[in-house]
Structure formats: C-alpha cells, structure tokens
Simulated scan of single mutants.
Amino acid sequence: MKDLKRENTPTEKQNPIDRLAYKGDLGVVVDRVAGAYEIGSPTNFSVIGVGYEDCNVVIQTADGKYVAKIFSKDRNQEAIARYSTIMEKAVEAGVNHPPLIKTSNGEVVYSDPQANGVSMVLMQFVEGQTFLELNSVPDVKEQETVIEQAAKVNKIDYHPPYLFDTWAIPNIKEMFERIKKFIEPADLKLIEKAMARYIEIPVDTLPHCFVHGDFTKANIMRGNDGKIYILDFSVANWYPRIQELAVIAANLLYDEGSGLSLRDRTERVLEMYDELNPLTPEEKQHLYAYALAGIAMEFMGGHQEKFIKGNTTEETEYWLNLGRNGLRKELSK
C-alpha cells in the first residue's frame, strides 16, 4: 500500500483551495481565523493535500499547532451546522477526537465575512500518523481500542439530518449505474457478484444507529502520545449499525501481505464488538456481505473520482487498487 502524502504539484482539480467559495489570499484568512479563535499570531501554515472534501489547513502559532477545517463551497449552512454538531456530540460522548477550539464568542464555527463568508472549525493538531501514512494495520491492542471507539460512536444519541454520500454502502446501486461504463468487464463481474450478495441483506430491518461511516486507515490515527484518534465525521449518518464494522473489516484491517481473508476480519471484528454492544443474529449473518459491498464501493468510488470528477491522483489510484485487489482476493476463486 502506498503512502499518500502528495509529492506532486496539485492540479486545479487536485488543489483543496479550489473547493472554497473564495479565491483570494489564504494567508489573510488564516490571520483572521487566529484572531477569532485567539490562538496567537500565525508563524506558518500549510494545506493538507489528501482527501476529496473541504480544505484542511495546519496553522502554527507561538501558542501551539492547530487544524482549520474550511468547509467547501458545496456545503450550505445547514450542512455546516450538522457537521459541527456531530463533532461536538462525539467529543461529549468521550470519542477520541482532536479537541475543538471555540471562538472568543464561544462558537465552534467561524465565518469570515471578508472571504465570501467561508466557514470553518478549528481543532488542536494531534501529532501522529494515520494508519494509511504508516502503511500498516492497528495491532491487536489498537484494534480493541478502535472497536471501543466505534461502540462509543454508535451509542451517541443523535439522529442527524440525512446526508447523501455517494460512497456510502447503501447507495451501491446508484454508484453502480453511474460508473459501470468505465469498468473493465472482468472487474464488472466481480462488482456484480458483490452487489448480488448485498441485495439479499434486509438492510431496512437491521438495527440502525448513529454511524461514523468512514473508519478507514485514512481516518484512524496513532498519536505520538500512544492514543488512537478518530478523525473526520464528514459522512456520519444514521445507518445500519454493521456499516461501521463493515468499513473496519474491509479497509482498516486489510493487509495485502496478510493471509487473513475478509471473512477472517469480519469474524474478528464481530467478536470484539459483540462484547461491548451485543449484535443481533441478523447482523452477524450479514456482516460479511455488507463488508464485501464496502470493498466494491471503494473500487467504484475510485472510478467515480478518476473518470467523472477527473481526480487522476495517487489517492485515487490507491482506492482503485485497494478495491480491485480486495474483490479479486474474495471472489476470484
């Protein structure tokens, strides 16, 4: 698996700054952010290149290091309020998320009237590396911690307004129709096999709850302080509870060099999670097919980014290779 730190110069479609409803000097925005949150004068800032949504900016001041998540022009005020509420509730529930910083007015969200009203939240910067950057999977103890965090997330008593996410597993049919013409015939057959299994799942009758929805290597961090941190609640929704476990098994615990199959990984996740939040027989029965659909969505999501959105980046190739290899390993037998 490749480390996704960008070394190439971003093209227009790759550059996170182009996602903003603002085309001016980002430096002056950073200065105003620092003033609004009272974190001291910035000495340096940099844009994080990985990811397809929003614009994340690391800000260094004499007082410390912070991350500003500047919301993209595709998010309206309702969506921004939804996201900030979710982050606050996650922190309140004891989820290991980077601490949120409030403005001098006690607000989590700051909107810059001099930058076309772009809105953002500010968090403490946590020193560490995601498991994508580490090119590894969590060890056994870390896996237990991740599952504990997932259980905390799933117990959050919040039913957010529905947010359509093209990558979410329940939207597999819509994704398939959108990108099927771009997929090679042999790979198309693998996706159709995964979809056939998913369609048999009684999704609507499975237990639903608040779900982070993206417990991937890119969003789980091993902090330098030894803690595990959960990042990026941007696609959190009210979903079948096993969606959380499916993503963990399909992505976070995937190791190309390991002999563990997806079936092995789902059994491991079931065993750990069931001790904290007992699962129903139906959830246990259908997790494998749900996780298999998750792999198919990674593969199709990569096609969407490359052929529809024009994101021909290393990150897109990562998703394409991950999905293709995962499907072939499970279904080419």
Rank of each mutant, 00 (worst) to 15 (best):
I201G: 05
V137R: 06
D3I: 13
P16M: 07
D25T: 02
L163N: 11
E283C: 07
V28F: 12
Q60D: 15
V109H: 10
F182P: 00
Y290V: 03
V28G: 00
T280G: 01
H303I: 07
N154C: 14
V146H: 02
F233K: 03
R6C: 01
V33Y: 03
N251S: 10
S119P: 00
E133I: 05
I17A: 14
V47Q: 05
E174D: 15
Q14S: 15
W319V: 01
A62S: 12
H208E: 08
I80D: 06
I80W: 08
V29T: 09
K155Y: 01
K284G: 08
E315N: 11
Y37A: 02
S72M: 06
S111F: 06
I242E: 09
L26P: 00
L231K: 05
D74M: 05
K69N: 05
A289H: 13
A151I: 04
G51F: 09
L20T: 06
G51V: 05
Q143G: 11
E7M: 10
S72V: 05
Y83H: 15
E192G: 04
H212S: 06
A194G: 07
V121Y: 04
D225Q: 09
M195E: 04
R197C: 04
I308Q: 03
R75K: 15
T266G: 02
A150V: 13
K5Q: 11
L245T: 07
R241L: 13
I179C: 13
K65V: 10
V118E: 05
E148Q: 13
D63T: 09
S46Q: 12
F131P: 14
Y273F: 14
E53Y: 11
C55D: 03
S84M: 08
E244A: 02
Q304I: 09
N277S: 12
T9Q: 10
E107C: 04
M87Y: 14
Q60G: 00
Q285L: 10
Y83K: 10
S72D: 13
D139E: 09
E305C: 04
V95D: 00
E144H: 09
D18Y: 12
E298G: 02
V118K: 00
A168H: 06
E88R: 15
G35L: 14
T316H: 05
A36I: 03
